[in-house]
Simulated scan of single mutants.
Amino acid sequence: MARWEPGTSDRLRAAALDLFVEQGFEQTTSAEIAHAAGVTERTFFRHFRDKREVLFGGQDQLELAFVTGIRDAPAGAPPLDLVAAALDSAAQFFTDERRASSRVRQTVVDANPALQERERHKLASVAAVLRTELHAHGVPEPAARLAAESGATVFSISFAQWIAPGEERGMREIADGVLGALVSLTGAGAAEMEA
């Protein structure tokens, strides 16, 4: 078996997804993933701590994309504009080339309650990172928490739409639409309360 070749992480990820779909997540071992990718199990563990990381690796990169969007936004921008900048920056992470594997990944997550919990934890982590960065940008409470939780929700809904069968729009376009729907909804609610 090859010890190192370019693209090993991608091969391991693809082999894992195939096996997870075919056998189920719990029934698949790291040794089987390594074998299917043509590497040793030791090589698998050089790339991933465990088989869950195959599905959830890249969290740090995703969170950095959200943070970068806020950091690059103009000083004094309103909280939802900062969230929009974060979503715009994170959308670059979700290229058309990633859509097919993201769809497969989500079917694996949806079939396993423990993975669903991990996915919820991932979204909570995104909200926490957004909130921290909004604080750093001068947004006080409770606006920072409301904006951060709303941003994580917009991201979650947008991602679900992005991986939906037959969907071809880019993540940025979808996120803009979902955020627009939220802004429209909150605007209508405020107007009704004032009346």
Rank of each mutant, 00 (worst) to 15 (best):
V109A: 08
R71L: 06
G38M: 04
F48K: 06
D110C: 03
F25Y: 15
R172E: 14
A144D: 07
I157W: 03
I163V: 15
G76A: 10
A144R: 11
R103G: 15
F66R: 13
G76T: 12
T40F: 02
S156M: 06
P142E: 10
A148I: 02
G57I: 01
V83M: 05
L115I: 03
A147T: 10
S102A: 13
A15C: 05
H137L: 03
S30C: 06
F155R: 08
G24Y: 01
A75R: 09
I157P: 05
A86P: 11
T186D: 12
D60Y: 01
P6N: 15
F45M: 07
V154N: 09
A77D: 10
E119F: 11
P140I: 12
S150R: 13
H47Q: 08
I174H: 04
L64H: 12
Q161L: 14
V67P: 01
I157R: 10
K122H: 12
A84G: 04
A144V: 07
V129K: 11
F159P: 11
Q161P: 00
G151Y: 04
A100T: 13
V129L: 01
E5S: 15
H137F: 01
S9G: 15
S158G: 15
G189Q: 15
A36N: 04
P79I: 07
V154K: 07
T153C: 11
E22A: 14
G76L: 09
D10V: 14
L146Q: 12
E194Y: 12
A34I: 09
E168T: 14
Q59K: 13
S102T: 07
